[in-house]
């Protein structure tokens, strides 16, 4: 993305320089500017972006694999509950995840529509009563991330936040065991 933005910036700067540098001006005929600036360059850029979006979109689909982890997310006014299938653990407003694994979050709500969002990890998804929406996310570095409700859901909406703790794979099970012991 940075490389693409740099190329576009340099090309635009060159076109702009043509207005001030007489030796470049003859190269920048209106026909060339329209053909390259209006058709060829945008088409190449858009094709690259669409191809990238298609490829990434397919990778983000929640296909069940051996490596995929699934966590149930239940939203209610004004808290988040996280359930970890295969364990009796349920945490409130604190989400534990392992680093380096695709995680499918199955998101639902018990009352009104909320929206589950961990901005640093990816896109948001609505939590709708009676319906499960799935979003696939992945943390590549251990640490703490902030999560919020991204859909106005009542007077307690603004403080309806949660903390995401991304553990190294070897520490993840220990974190769940520790939660179960509480």
């Amino acid at each position: 993305m940075l490389a693409g933005a740099t190329v576009i910036f340099l090309a635009t700067s060159l076109a702009l320089a043509g207005a001030f540098i007489p030796s470049i001006r003859p190269l920048l005929t209106p026909k060339r500017l329209i053909l390259w600036g209006g058709l060829v360059v945008p088409s190449l850029g858009l094709t690259a972006l669409v191809a990238g979006a298609f490829t990434l979109g397919e990778r983000l689909l929640p296909r069940q694999g051996a490596e995929t982890l699934r966590i149930e997310v239940v939203a209610r006014q004004f808290a988040w509950e996280f359930r970890y299938p295969g364990t009796p653990v349920a945490t409130r407003d604190v989400l534990h995840i392992p680093v380096g694994r695709d995680i499918d979050f199955a998101v639902t709500s018990e009352d009104v529509i909320h929206s589950f969002w961990i901005p640093r990890l990816g896109g948001k998804i609505d939590a709708i009563p009676g319906h499960k929406n799935i979003v696939r996310l992945r943390a590549d570095a251990p640490g703490t991330y902030g999560g919020i409700c991204a859909e106005y859901c009542g007077e307690g909406h603004a403080p309806m936040r949660f903390i995401v703790i991304a553990h190294a794979p070897e520490d993840y099970e220990a974190a769940l065991t520790s939660e179960a012991a509480r």
Binding site: L46, T47, V50, F54, G57, E58, L61, P62, R63, Q64
Partner: peptide, 15 residues
């Protein structure tokens, strides 16, 4: 043709 080529190529619904 460009924007709707996904109709041919992509997964249509969440698995």
């Amino acid at each position: 043709m460009f924007t709707y080529c996904g109709t041919v190529l992509l997964t249509t619904c969440n698995p």
